[in-house]
Write a protein that binds this DNA or RNA. Structure first.
Lengths: 228, 228
DNA sequence: ATAAATCTGTCAACTAGGCGACACTGTTGG
DNA sequence: CCAACAGTGTCGCCTAGTTGACAGATTTAT
C-alpha cells in the first residue's frame, strides 16, 4: 500500500514538480477504490481526469468487435494513466480495468486544466513520459511487422522483467514475472497455444522455468541473444 | 516549392509560437538539399537536430537484419521530423531517406536546447504533436494485433487519403494516392502479393481504381464500411 | 476435504499470408 | 524508338500461427 503523497511525489511525472504544485494536486485529488474487474474508464469515454495507481494493478487494453483483446499495458502502483486524453482533449484510447482490488488517485480534469493554463511551463514535465510511451509504441509496431514471435516474446519478457519483475529468489535481481500465459498471449496479439509452445521451447533450452501463473528467467543473457 | 519562412510558420508545431521565437529559429536554420535516396539520418544516430521538409518526400522506416523494411511514415513538405530525439536526448528511432530530390530545413540541436532552456513554456507546443503521433502509433499496434489485413488496408488507404491525398479528378476532393503497392505493403508489414490481391478485390467491388503507381478511391463510404 | 475455477500442455485440422517465379504492362531516359 | 527499369497480376508450394478440443495440474473457495 502506497499512500497518496508518496504517489504524487514518487513518479517521474511529478517528482520534478515544484512543491507548491504538488500541494495543490494533493488538495484536489481523491482516492477511489475499485473491485476486481471494475472499469476505470472505457475506450471512447471523454477524458474526465488523471488516475494514479496506489494499490493493485490496472490493465489497459483494446477489444475488437469479435471479443479478441489486446493487452497494451499493465499499470502498477506509482504509475499514472489517462494523461493523453487530458492533454489533447480527445476520447480515451483504451479500456482500463482493475485487476484485483485496487485503489487509485483521481485528479479531476478541470483542476488540472486550470493549473496548466496558469503555469504553461509545467507542460515540460509531460514531455519525457510522452516520448517514452511513443518510443515504446513505435517499437511494438516495428516488432509486429518485422520480428518473429520468438523474438518478440524474448523482448517482451525482458521488458516485463524490468517493469514488473519480482525478486522471488532472494538474489536481489528481478527474475520472476507473475502473469498467466493467456495475458502474455494477449500482449503479443497471438493465441495462448502459440505462446505456450514458445515458452516450453525456452524452458527445454534452460532459459526460463515455468510454473502456475508465472515464469522465472534463469538465463537473461540467452534471452537477450534471441533479440533481433 | 515552399520557402523557409512558410515552413517555419505553416506547421502546427510552430504556428502557435511567438513571432520573436520564429525569427530566432529563422536565423539559425539552414537549408540542405538531398539527392534521391540520400540519408537524412539513420536509426541509432545521435539526435543532432530537427528537420523540416521543404520539397520532396522523406520516408521514415525501420529495417530488420534480414533486410525487410517497415515504412512507418511519409513526410511531406510542411512537416517536421526528428523532434523526439531532440526532446528526450535518445538516439534516432528510425531511418530517414529522401524520396526523389529533397530540400530540408535543419535546426541544430544546440540552438534549440538553449531556446527551450530559456523559455520552458515553449514545451507546450510539442504536446499536441506528440499526442497525435502516440495515438497513431497505438492505433497501429491495435490494428496489427486485432484487425485483418482487409480492415487494416481500408483504414490505411483512408489515412493516406487525408494525409497525402491528391485531387486528380478536379472534384475538389482528395481521391488519389500516389504510392506503389510495394510501399503500401511495407507500411502494413505484409508482402506485395497480399496487398495486390486485396487491392484487386477492392477494385472488382468498384471501391477503388488501380493504375501504375497509384490508386483512386471511388467509393470512400464503402472503405469506411470495411473498418472494424 | 472437496468442488470449482484457473492455468498449462498438447493434439489435429485448417488458413492467412510468405516466398519464389514469371509474364505482362507502363514509364523513363538515352 | 528502343532498352532498361519499375510496377502489377497471378501462379503454386510452404510455414507459422489459428481454432477447437480435451486432459492434467495447481490454486482458491466453500
Amino acid at each position: 500500500m502506497i499512500d497518496k503523497r508518496q504517489i504524487l511525489s514518487a513518479n517521474p511525472l511529478l517528482s520534478g514538480l515544484p512543491a507548491d504544485v504538488v500541494e495543490q494536486l494533493m488538495a484536489v485529488s481523491v482516492v477511489r477504490t475499485l473491485a476486481d474487474g471494475q472499469c476505470v474508464y472505457s475506450q471512447g469515454d471523454e477524458g474526465d481526469g488523471l488516475f494514479g495507481v496506489i494499490q493493485g494493478r490496472v490493465r489497459l487494453s483494446n477489444t475488437s468487435k469479435d471479443g479478441k483483446e489486446l493487452l497494451v499495458m499493465l499499470v502498477e502502483p506509482g504509475d499514472w494513466i489517462g494523461e493523453i486524453s487530458l492533454l489533447d482533449g480527445l476520447p480515451r484510447s483504451h479500456d482500463a480495468f482493475a485487476m484485483g482490488e485496487c485503489a487509485v488517485l483521481f485528479l479531476p480534469r478541470a483542476k488540472f486544466d486550470s493549473l496548466l493554463k496558469a503555469r504553461p511551463e509545467l507542460y515540460q514535465h509531460f514531455i519525457p513520459m510522452l516520448c517514452r510511451k511513443l518510443r515504446l509504441a513505435l517499437s511494438y509496431v516495428e516488432g509486429a511487422a518485422l520480428f518473429s514471435l520468438t523474438e518478440r516474446l524474448a523482448q517482451r519478457i525482458l521488458e516485463l522483467l524490468t517493469f514488473y519483475g519480482v525478486d522471488d529468489g532472494g538474489s536481489g535481481r528481478l527474475i520472476d514475472v507473475h502473469l498467466p500465459q493467456e495475458d502474455l498471449a494477449k500482449m503479443l496479439g497471438v493465441s495462448r497455444q502459440a505462446i505456450s509452445r514458445e515458452l516450453k521451447r525456452l524452458e527445454t533450452e534452460g532459459v526460463i522455468e515455468l510454473s502456475y501463473g508465472k515464469l522465472r528467467v534463469l538465463n537473461k543473457a540467452a534471452l537477450e541473444r534471441e533479440l533481433a
